[in-house]
Design a protein around this nucleic acid. Structure first.
Length: 443
RNA sequence: GCCCUGGUAGUAUAGUCCGGCCUAGUAUAGGCGGCUGUCACCCGCCUGACCCGGGUUCAAAUCCCGGCCAGGGCGCCA
């Protein structure tokens, strides 16, 4: 049977119900369901198919002596991951999963899957992440990725709900940029017609400029980092959730961050019970406010734990791991030395060596960072010079400060790191569809 | 850029230290056959692998060197 034939008779395979719609109450109804064969259990006189669609699973039961010859013929050739449509009758059945099954009157094969499959889609013989990522489209049909990306979707939905309710407007800034935004960090160069350009490592400068126009903005978009990191928490391309807020300080935007995280944790734990069960993960909805530790306090904690860090030095990963054991929850580290922060972060008026900045941590992983920004053009120019950045490259950014730049603050959250927290998944590549890292550029 | 670890059927593993008993074991997937209530169905039979190149040795999956690939970590960061 050719595909042309089935395609031109679409009414034969168009579904009437999703698998999740099939309940014992529909007993006796004729339905058309469609999806993919997950498993086949052939007992000889009776055959069981588990059919998957986007909403879940249903058992299709084929008793040899109760279905017609053509159904048996088609069913004999079925394989895992074949795409099929089944017209049949719903039957209430206590012995079936969920107490209901479908007895087919016809099965149409819409496409076949090549056997053997490169990975076990039932997840019973788990494959290594490298093998799974090479066959990512197939990997994503498994229950675990389905749960992860459903949670990711709900988290994004919650994030947008939260920002909308709180008066933020969603913006999209360019990802192809002319110069480095913050200096230092490695950017990916791209050919832009006859010039060289770069992929944005953050929307930082644009979102700051936009507070003049919209006061409260947020962006959910890609960020690119050419760092040669090779860890379970780094990607070369990730999604950054960024906000910038006019007439605000670091403390104001920290409150936004903790309220957002509490909201997202609550929404995901309520709307994704099934998914969390699949992942065997429980979300602890955090109390707010989150604890705030100053950089100095953290240095003291670490000293007591036997780790000596000189004031002004960054905190190495091993030290963060120790901190994670001391503080297994969300917390802020505030009052970072100005020298450790980018040029646009505001130094404290009373103590310029300390900045109005924060990192938001979950255990030992940095989830977000932000702070009060400098809104005074002269000070900004001074800081650019101190960091040996070219004023010429920042010409257009500096120009914005001539048009009534308000005091402002903001932060950026690494979406995938947040999804790791929400799902309990320990490798960041599991929570992004097609990861890009130091060594992986395909598929 | 640096450091550590690994590479055995489609997948996941045993074997590698201490070379020979490996004609490379097991599970799962795949093929064939049987089985009417499975839900990791079951039972029987079958197919299928030592990353590549060089070296040591009577003998290499096993030891050595190089390459390639992968995993993890550091630095840097979200």
């Amino acid at each position: 049977m050719g595909l042309e034939k089935t395609s031109s008779h679409a009414y034969l395979w168009k579904r009437t119900h999703y698998t999740s719609d099939i309940t014992p109450e529909l007993d006796g109804r004729e339905v058309i369901i469609a999806g993919w064969v997950r498993e086949i259990r052939d007992l000889g006189g009776i055959k069981f198919l588990v059919l998957k669609d986007k909403e879940g699973f249903i058992q299709v039961t084929i008793p040899k002596d109760k279905v017609n010859e053509s159904v048996i013929k088609v069913a004999e050739d079925l394989q895992r991951q074949d795409c099929i449509s089944v017209r049949g009758t719903v039957k209430k059945m206590d012995k079936a999963p969920r107490g209901v099954e479908v007895i087919p009157e016809s099965i149409i094969v819409l496409n076949r899957a090549k056997q053997p499959l490169p990975i076990d889609i039932t997840g019973k013989t788990p494959a290594d992440i490298d093998v799974r990522l090479d066959a990512r489209v197939l990997d994503l049909v498994r229950d675990e990725p389905q749960a992860i990306f459903r949670i990711r979707h709900v988290a994004l939905e919650a994030i947008r709900e939260f920002f909308s309710k709180n008066g933020f407007i969603e913006v999209h800034t360019p990802k192809i940029i002319a110069t480095a935004t913050e200096g230092g960090a490695s950017l990916f160069p791209v050919i832009y017609f006859e010039r060289e350009a770069f992929l944005a490592q953050s929307p930082q400068l644009y979102k700051e400029q936009l507070v003049i126009d919209f006061e409260k903005v947020y962006e959910i978009g890609p960020a690119f980092r050419a760092e040669k990191s090779h860890t379970r928490r780094h990607l070369a391309e990730f999604i950054s959730v960024d906000i910038e807020m006019a007439f605000a300080t670091a403390e104001d935007v920290m409150e936004v961050a903790e309220r957002l995280l509490q909201y997202v944790c609550r929404v995901v734990s309520e709307r994704c019970r099934k998914e969390l069960e699949i992942l065997k993960h429980k979300i602890d909805v955090p109390q707010i406010p989150f604890k705030r530790f100053t950089y100095d306090e953290i240095l003291n904690d670490l000293r007591e734990a036997g780790i000596k860090i000189n004031w002004g030095e960054d905190i190495p990963t091993m030290a963060f791991r120790t901190l994670g054991k001391l503080h297994p929850y969300f917390y802020f580290i505030v009052d970072w030395p100005t020298q450790l922060k980018p040029f646009y972060i505001k130094p404290r008026d009373d103590k310029p060596e300390i900045s109005e900045s924060f990192d938001l941590m979950w255990h030992w992983v940095e989830i977000a960072s932000g702070g009060t920004r400098i809104h005074d053009k002269e000070l900004l120019i001074k800081r650019l010079k101190e960091q040996n950045l070219s004023l010429e490259s920042f010409k257009y950014h500096l120009q914005a400060f001539d048009y009534g730049m308000p005091p402002h603050a903001g932060w950026g959250i690494g979406l995938e790191r947040l999804i790791m927290v929400l799902t309990g998944i320990r490798n960041i590549r599991e929570v992004i569809l097609f990861p890009r890292d130091r060594f992986r550029l395909t598929p």
